[in-house]
Amino acid sequence: MDLTLLLAAVLGLLIVKAVLFQLRNPSCPPCIRSWIPWFGAAFQFGKAPLEFIEQARNKYGPVFTIFALGKRFTFVTEEEGTEAFFKSEDLNFEQAVQQAVKNAVSVPAEAFYQNHSNLYSMMKGKMSPSNLHMFTGTLCKELHEHMAQLGMEGTGDLNDLVRNWSKSKKWLLKLFEKVVLDAERTNPSDTTSKVAFWTLAFILSHPSIYKKVMEDLASVFGKAGKDKLEVSEEDLKKLPFIKWCTLEAIRLRSPGAITKKVINPIKIKNFTIPAGDMLMLSPYWLHRNPKYFPDPETFKPDRWKEANLEKNAFLDSFVAFGGGKHQCPGRWFAIMEIQLFVILFLYKYEFVALDAVPKESPLHLVGTQQPMAPFRVQYKCRE
């Protein structure tokens, strides 16, 4: 009897395997699974997503699928498929994020689909480049209040110094609450403060770049750092190198994936991605393509002189803020906010880096990566 039950159990497992792990359609990308039904590769993938993606790219190529938690996630990690991701009518952004929004802030699906487009347009208008001058005064005041808490000098982890600033941005939270209302409650994340940290860390770790930034600041504001500086939109235009540093930090610490849902089969390279897949475009890996970014792992702000930033155009293959009609509506505001942070901090304080730039955490698939180790600095008011 025991042998009969054992044979039946084995037969049952074989049947399940035959159904769930049938031979892959050759037109579909290679699929990474496991022998565990429904759960799939979730455990291996969840331990360190960026490392898992790198290993998958090396083994299967730039397009591959991960089956996890009953869903298929198809990754595109090189330029093929970028145009389709941003422009194809066979992909849908709202369907990709609706469940996550519901889980996070309890917005019903009907309200989300009904209001998302209007809310996006509203935010895009309020934070357009032509309106950024309305925010500089408030941002400068807030930053000066934060720096007053740091005192005249000190030593600490730069990530903590920056992160504490992000926790005080109550006026920005009020702005989002006012705009979004009750239909889609969305609070800004601390992504901006993470990028501000990385921007400062990269600058301080490259003496020639640090020197260049300080020379630019002195040419616009003078050498003393004691005054409560208020930076205008015109001042920002005179400091393009700091904007380049900001964009270069964003390039190196971009999200591991942004997503849309496949609603009709779509062809990428020689593969057909079936309806129902979550298509995952990877800015993190696209920004490491040497075809577009020579010496891609190196912090090189000068590469951004080739971008037509005066016309709000990024470098080719730079997709940190998405693309098409669903680019991040607050992208220009975020870039400006980071610029102001860097300007005011470096104008007021002299910094000495005590550690090398830490590696980014492989745990962050979405959003900007956290540092894996402290980045300690000494700072004191400039004389």
Rank of each mutant, 00 (worst) to 15 (best):
Met1Arg: 06
Thr4Ala: 06
Leu6Ser: 07
Val10Arg: 15
Leu11Pro: 08
Leu11Met: 11
Leu23Met: 06
Ser27Ala: 12
Pro30Lys: 11
Trp35Gln: 13
Phe39Gln: 14
Ala42Leu: 15
Gln44Lys: 13
Gly46Leu: 05
Leu50Trp: 07
Glu51Gly: 06
Phe52Gln: 10
Gln55Arg: 14
Tyr60Pro: 06
Pro62Gly: 04
Val63Trp: 08
Val63Arg: 14
Phe64Asp: 10
Phe64Asn: 14
Glu80Pro: 13
Gly81Ser: 14
Thr82Ser: 11
Gln95Asp: 15
Gln95Leu: 13
Asn103Val: 12
Ala104Gly: 03
Ser106Ile: 07
Gln114Gly: 04
Ser117Arg: 12
Ser117Ala: 07
Asn118Ala: 08
Gly125Val: 03
Met127Ser: 08
Thr136Asp: 12
Glu142Tyr: 05
Leu143Asn: 06
Gly151Thr: 01
Glu153Trp: 01
Asp160Phe: 09
Arg163Ile: 02
Ser166Ile: 07
Trp171Met: 13
Leu172Tyr: 02
Leu173Cys: 06
Leu173Trp: 03
Glu184Trp: 02
Thr192Leu: 11
Ser193Cys: 07
Lys194Pro: 01
Val195Thr: 09
Val195Phe: 03
Phe197Tyr: 09
Leu200Gln: 11
Ala201Gln: 07
Leu217Trp: 11
Gly222Phe: 05
Gly222Leu: 06
Ala224Asp: 12
Asp227Ala: 12
Lys238Arg: 13
Leu247Thr: 07
Arg251Gly: 01
Leu252Gln: 01
Pro255Met: 01
Val262Asp: 05
Thr272Glu: 09
Glu297Pro: 00
Lys300Leu: 05
Pro301Lys: 00
Lys305Phe: 01
Leu309Asp: 04
Lys311Val: 03
Asn312Phe: 11
Phe314Thr: 07
Gln327Arg: 04
Phe333Trp: 09
Met336Phe: 04
Phe345Met: 15
Leu346Phe: 07
Val352Ala: 12
Leu354Ile: 04
Ser361His: 00
Gln370Tyr: 00
Lys380Arg: 01
Cys381Val: 02
Arg382His: 00
